[in-house]
Design a protein around this nucleic acid. Structure first.
Length: 271
DNA sequence: AGCTCACCCTGGACGC
DNA sequence: TGCGTCCAGGGTGAGC
């Protein structure tokens, strides 16, 4: 599932391939995922020039000046850069044809993701609902935001209103590296724990970006050139229930459900 | 404030 | 081979 590093990778690629180009045609095959509607998106964006592509949390933001297109990939969304004549991708739900024979395809198997037309003001409203970016937040702001919460540390990390960009894989990995049990209440970690967690989050996200994201199965994340990421080679606990703890403590990676999310940790190392 | 649950949706895995 | 059931999960919203 695309999280900050995957979205960051895609965003950079899109920006270098498409910024400055005119959007010629939009086609939406599944009305539901195009908001507010295909007609509105066509009316506003066809003929408009893309200024740049950026990232806000896990959202990809296409800046067209007075109009803004926001794409959220959610679980199974992918963006592929092809040419105009290329056939539809397996789960293609929408396409955006640009100048220079560039065709952006929105592939979205489970259709949780969406493409939403908004304005710069609308984007500001969406930003307000998100906490600071996980890579930009300062240590003091991070600890401050944990203080007044009264739930488990992992739920807080996944809550985009607290900090934005972290998803299930990187949250599990960061907690493991910081030796913090995912069910621990946020008020319990010491300042030292928080500092360790803060560093672990930065470490896994930066490593994730350097590795071009994580592709844990064939159907999952790809970049816009359909290339896999490599961060899965560095994953220590996510999706590894039953295997030996990578710290060689003698314990085994355990899986529990926390807030409906698969949660992986070593009960011996993480307290 | 925070918990649980249903919902959105599809396809892969598994049981019979 | 084929059908039914279960499961995965980011985010939102309802109800407690």
């Amino acid at each position: 599932m695309p999280e900050l590093p995957e979205v960051q990778t895609i965003t950079q690629q899109l920006n270098s391939e498409l910024s400055g180009l005119k959007l010629l045609a939009v086609k939406c095959f599944k009305p539901k995922i195009c908001k507010p509607s295909e007609v509105t998106i066509k009316r506003q964006l066809e003929g408009a020039r893309l200024r740049k592509v950026g990232r806000v949390g896990k959202m990809i933001v296409f800046d067209f000046g007075k109009d803004v297109l926001v794409i959220h990939l959610r679980l199974t969304g992918r963006l592929f850069l092809l040419n105009h004549k290329a056939p539809r991708t397996r789960w293609e739900r929408a396409r955006f044809d640009f100048e220079n024979d560039r065709s952006l395809r929105f592939d979205n198997m489970r259709m949780f993701g969406f493409a939403k037309l908004t304005t710069p003001e609308g984007l500001q409203e969406m930003k307000k609902k998100l906490g600071p970016d996980a890579l930009e937040i300062s240590l003091s702001d991070f600890s401050q935001r944990l203080k007044h919460r009264r739930t488990s540390i992992k739920k807080v990390l996944l809550d985009q209103k607290t900090i934005s960009g972290l998803g299930n894989i990187y949250a599990n990995e960061a907690l493991f590296r910081a030796n913090i049990h995912p069910e621990r209440l946020v008020e319990s970690p010491t300042a030292k724990d928080i500092r360790r967690l803060f560093s672990a989050i930065r470490e896994v996200l930066k490593k994730g970006i350097a590795a071009g994201g994580a592709t844990l199965s064939d159907e999952m994340y790809r970049d816009i050139y359909n290339k896999r990421g490599h961060y899965e080679d560095y994953v220590l606990v996510y999706n590894k229930a039953g295997s030996a703890c990578p710290n060689q403590c003698g314990g085994k990676v355990q899986k529990i459900q926390l807030g409906g999310r698969g949660t992986y940790f070593c009960p011996k190392c993480q307290r």
